[in-house]
């Protein structure tokens, strides 16, 4: 589904991603871990199409298409979804209006008829249950004044509404209490199918008890320096990143 080869990206001339290789097949869950500043959010942003990042080398093929050629909105319409580490507050834009516009633009791109108000509301109600999000939140402006947890829940709710093929969850677990974590994970798991894939970026093994990954990758200094199965996450939890950093840094100095 997704094939990243030798991806290099920089911001304002500073290289951040320095040769990422990653293969993801439909139905898989990949966890990306790594110390602060290693480039996890950068990778997520580059996949979603943030313009500030310049891709200097490499390629990203998504379902046979050259993803990097697409605008952010077309990537979303093709089925890429990014749950932001820091969802943006947008005062004055009603959550419902926003979602309806989004859903219908995505549908139009996929050759489907737009949902009328009734059908849209039905869909919304159904998906709201999935992440147990309160109606009251959605009658407010988008993310405005939402707590950290509410914002994260809203990200997953939007994901449920847009039914993406590839979801990238950037630290969706950070700041969630255990109940909220269970709800969010449960939502993600219910949306999982053999046809879609998920990338979860996280610092905590805890999340991976609920969203069980097929693979775990460690990102460090803009490269994937170690890959393994879910046991790797447990090992990282126990030992931290120092042993990986040391191995990489000593190799680099040789």
């Amino acid at each position: 589904m997704l094939s990243i080869k030798n991806l290099h990206a920089s911001i304002e001339g500073t290289p951040i991603l320095r040769g990422i290789n990653l293969e993801i097949k439909a139905g898989e869950v990949h966890a990306i871990m790594g110390p602060n500043g290693s480039g996890k959010s950068t990778l997520a942003s580059v996949l979603a199409g943030r313009e500030e990042y310049e891709v200097t080398d490499g390629e990203v093929i998504f379902n046979g298409k050259d993803l990097l050629e697409y605008s952010p909105e077309d990537r979303a319409r093709e089925g890429v979804f990014l749950a932001f580490q820091y969802p943006v507050e947008i005062p004055g834009v009603s959550s419902t209006n926003f979602l309806r516009t989004a859903v219908n633009q995505v549908r139009e791109y996929r050759g489907l008829d737009p949902l009328d108000a009734v059908k849209f509301l039905t869909l919304m109600k159904e998906k709201m249950k999935l992440v147990e999000i309160d109606q009251k939140l959605l009658s407010r402006s988008l993310n405005e004044g939402f707590s950290g947890g509410e914002k994260k829940r809203n990200e997953i709710f939007q994901m449920a509404m847009l039914e993406p093929k590839l979801s990238i969850l950037d630290e969706t677990d950070s700041g969630l209490d255990i109940d909220a974590l269970k709800i969010v994970s449960n939502g993600v798991n219910q949306l999982k199918s053999k046809d879609n894939a998920t990338i979860v970026v996280t610092h905590y093994q805890r999340l991976l008890d609920y969203i069980v990954p097929d693979y775990v990758h460690v990102l460090y200094k803009g490269r994937i320096v170690k890959s393994g199965t879910k046991e790797l996450a447990l090992e990282l939890e126990e030992k931290g990143y120092d042993w990986i950093k040391e191995a990489v840094d000593s190799e680099a100095t040789v």
Partner: peptide, 23 residues
């Protein structure tokens, strides 16, 4: 940042700008 957020939800750039300006 708000513009990018809206775009990543599949809303076209022009329309996203319109939404923000209208807000």
């Amino acid at each position: 940042e708000a513009l990018f957020y809206l775009q990543t939800r599949g809303i076209g750039k022009l329309q996203a700008k319109g939404l923000l300006l209208y807000a």
